[in-house]
Every structure is written in structure tokens, then in C-alpha cells.
């Protein structure tokens, strides 16, 4: 099983397998380190910097999600520098972004005691919802530029490369090329970007519509695991059902076939199930 190394986290000695990230090492000793952009099935983007920790001997703080643990490393997860960085990250994001449907960001605000108004009032991400197809919407007011959607569309899963981060600096944005609509773009509507979006910036049209009508109620939704009925790959589906209607389809992130990813038919092609007049009975 490879070699093991020993490091110190908040004064506690920890032994982990070689190649383990600092963040995973922290998890092994139940030390909570917040993350926003990190996703278990995607390459670390290193973008949000919510997961920074202090590594002894390092001039700057270190992103724990991507840094591989080394023998003898001494790590502190809650020094004043770490606390300040986390808090400012939360404050900067909330000053630009609608975080109302971003659970991890809401948690970060709370744990870092962020003042969400401190840097507010300047340029923000507010913009109209992009509603250019009937499968999913893009509400980029909620985007935190975590790169997850780009990675899922690109070489971490779908390999379609329909979207990219374009422009630079504060004007960086997720774009399909010259602001094209999705139907004009290379998008194949697999919705894997939606599956990994942590903020609700990408959302199924059904969920978005139900939410805007105040009909989306997590407590009323049942989730059943089953297998897709299209091709022979055998993707596991989680059917989210509200009032006997499938309102959303996802897949478990830990499933060995899908790793949480589906194709357009599996994710959106379920309507035939509930066309109530499909058979005169």
C-alpha cells in the first residue's frame, strides 16, 4: 500500500499514506478545513483559497486541497493569519456574489465570522439569469469562479470543452466563446457542470422554476437510487421525486460507473416516464 509519512496537525502527530493531501490528512484527524472550489472527483483548482493553512517554514499560506503532505510537515489550521485569510475570502466573495443557494459559502461565512457588508458596495457580479434552453439555467450572479464546471466539461470528465474561463481579473467569467448561448455552443447538455456547481449558479430548469414558484421543498422530495434505462453503460441515477413527479436526476459522486457524471439522456431524458397520457389506460 505504499509508504506512510508522519506530520503534525495542530500539535497532533498524524500518519498518512504517501501522496495524501494536507486537506485529506486534516480530515483523517477530524480537523475541519473549509473548502469551496475543491471537489472529490475533480482536479484541485486552487482558486478559492478558503482551505489555506499555515505550514511551518512557508512564507505564504498553503492551499491544503492540493498540497501533498510531506514527512515532518508542521501544520496549523487556525492561526490568526489563517483566520484573517478565510474571513477576507468570505467577505470578498459575498461582496460580489449572490450566495443565497451556496451552502458551503454560507458555512464559511458563519465559521469565519465574516462581515458580508465590509467590502460590499463596489463592482459586483449581478447580472440577468441566462435562460437560453429548457434543460438548465445559468445565473452567473451566483458564480464564484470555482472552475468546477470548466473541469467537469473538460478533461476531468466530459471532455467536451464547451465552456472556459474567459477574460481576466475581476472580469473573468465562464463563457462558451464570445458570450454565445449554450445552444449555439459546443455544449452537449450533459449537465455535469450543474452537478458539480456549489452555488446554484447552474441549476436544472425544473428546479429553478419550482424554486421561483416557491414549490421546491427539500423535505417533500424523496430520492431513489436506480439505473438509467438508456444505453448499456449502467449509470446509477438518483431520482428526486416531488408529488410523484421526477423533478431532478443526479448520480452519486462515489458510484464506480458514473463518479457523479451523467449524459444528457440520463440526466434530462426522464420526461417520457411521466407523460401521463402516454398510454390510454
Amino acid at each position: 500500500m505504499g509508504n506512510r509519512i508522519t506530520l503534525t496537525i495542530d500539535g497532533q502527530s498524524v500518519s498518512v499514506a504517501e501522496g495524501t493531501t494536507v486537506h485529506a490528512a486534516c480530515e483523517q484527524v477530524d480537523t475541519f478545513v473549509p473548502t469551496l472550489c475543491w471537489h472529490e472527483n475533480l482536479s484541485p483548482a486552487n482558486a478559492c483559497r478558503a482551505c489555506v493553512v499555515e505550514v511551518k517554514g512557508s512564507r505564504t499560506l498553503v492551499a491544503s486541497c492540493s498540497r501533498v503532505a510531506e514527512e515532518g510537515m508542521v501544520i496549523e489550521t487556525s492561526t490568526p493569519r489563517v483566520a484573517n485569510a478565510r474571513r477576507v475570502v468570505a467577505e470578498l466573495l459575498t461582496s460580489t456574489t449572490d450566495y443565497s443557494t451556496a451552502p458551503e459559502l454560507l458555512d464559511l461565512i458563519e465559521m469565519s465570522s465574516a462581515d458580508t457588508r465590509r467590502f460590499a458596495g463596489g463592482a459586483s457580479w449581478e447580472q440577468p439569469v441566462k435562460d437560453d434552453n429548457n434543460l438548465y439555467i445559468r445565473d452567473l450572479s451566483k458564480c464564484i469562479l470555482c472552475y468546477r464546471c470548466v473541469e467537469a466539461c473538460g478533461d476531468d470528465a466530459q471532455n467536451t470543452f464547451a465552456i472556459t474561463v474567459a477574460g481576466r481579473g475581476f472580469d473573468s467569467r465562464i463563457d462558451a466563446g464570445f458570450g454565445r448561448t449554450l445552444p449555439e455552443s459546443d455544449c452537449v447538455f450533459c449537465g455535469n457542470c450543474v452537478a458539480v456547481c456549489p452555488t446554484g449558479a447552474l441549476m436544472e430548469k425544473t428546479e429553478w422554476t419550482l424554486r421561483s414558484e416557491n414549490k421546491w421543498d427539500d423535505n417533500q422530495i424523496t430520492t431513489t437510487e436506480t439505473i438509467c434505462s438508456y444505453c448499456g453503460v449502467g449509470c446509477q441515477l438518483s431520482l428526486h421525486v416531488l408529488d410523484n413527479q421526477i423533478v431532478k436526476v443526479s448520480s452519486p459522486m462515489d458510484h464506480p460507473v458514473t463518479h457523479g457524471m451523467l449524459c444528457v439522456k440520463g440526466r434530462y431524458g426522464y420526461q417520457f416516464v411521466q407523460v401521463e397520457d402516454h398510454m390510454p389506460v
Binding site: N46, A50, A85, L92, L145, R168, G169, F170
Partner: peptide, 11 residues
Amino acid sequence: ESCGQCVPCRI
């Protein structure tokens, strides 16, 4: 000139 990749610098 910020590339926009990380939050502290971009915003």
C-alpha cells in the same frame, strides 16, 4: 493585470 484565478487577488 490580475489573472482572476484566485479570490484574494481577483476580487
